[in-house]
Design a protein around this nucleic acid. Sequence first.
DNA 1: ATGCCAACACAATGTTGA
Length: 265
Amino acid sequence: MRFATWNVNSIRTRVDRVIAFLERCDVDVLAMQEIKCKPEQFPTEAFTAAGYHVAVHGLNQWNGVAVASRLPILHIDTHFAGQPAFGDPAQVEARALGVTLGHKEGTDFTIWSLYVPNGRSLDHPHYAYKLAWLAALKAEAARWLSADSQARIALVGDWNVAPFDEDVWDISAFEGSTHVSEAERRAFFAFAEDGWEEVTRERVTNYTYWDYQKLRFVKNEGMRIDFVYASPALAAAVSEVEIDRNERKGKGASDHVPVIVTVDE
DNA sequence: ATGCCAACACAATGTTGA
């Protein structure tokens, strides 16, 4: 079984490229972020025609998360318990989608497609929101592991945190910026305290994002901010991880590339 | 090489992204 996460930066703009990726890489489950549309605007037919079920959560043109799966969908959560709200009026944004999928012989698999708030700047309310959001997710996710130590759960997506200095092309260019602050890094690493294992770090080295501006991709000035935290039972079954850097090439590319995880059956 | 900001709503710019 193979699952992937990809910040697609608008599914309506990118649907042909996403479907081609699913087929080319033989991906069974894809968690998408930044679909930038409501469910009724989502190109469901293209996924259905390719053999995928879809779960979609989007409230407006911002954010939005979805899961496409060859496996049957058993359960959908459009937010996690305690997920913080933001804005005026405060709204629980479309940044988390939990989907439980039927798997072989009753071994269900739950994937959470996560789009962690950007933070904007260290002195912006969005930054406090980002830290609160990560802390609330950690608290709730710890309960999932406590409830079932053998559960196969993946917390995947655009974490908007570069956990190590080498996850950005030049740490000196990020002085005073979000994504690299100590508080954000602590909030990211804290998941490991509860047993979550980030399974991509030890298996592959590459950036997952390159800004559209300033020839960042050509100069390979990127950031590594898309990650996969797996429950212990799932982490034990991971056999391979790939970052599909080729998806950043050419006309019509997202600024993020897919991260693909292969799991032994 | 991989190529010089993109996508959204809304109708000219403003917002968001990292």
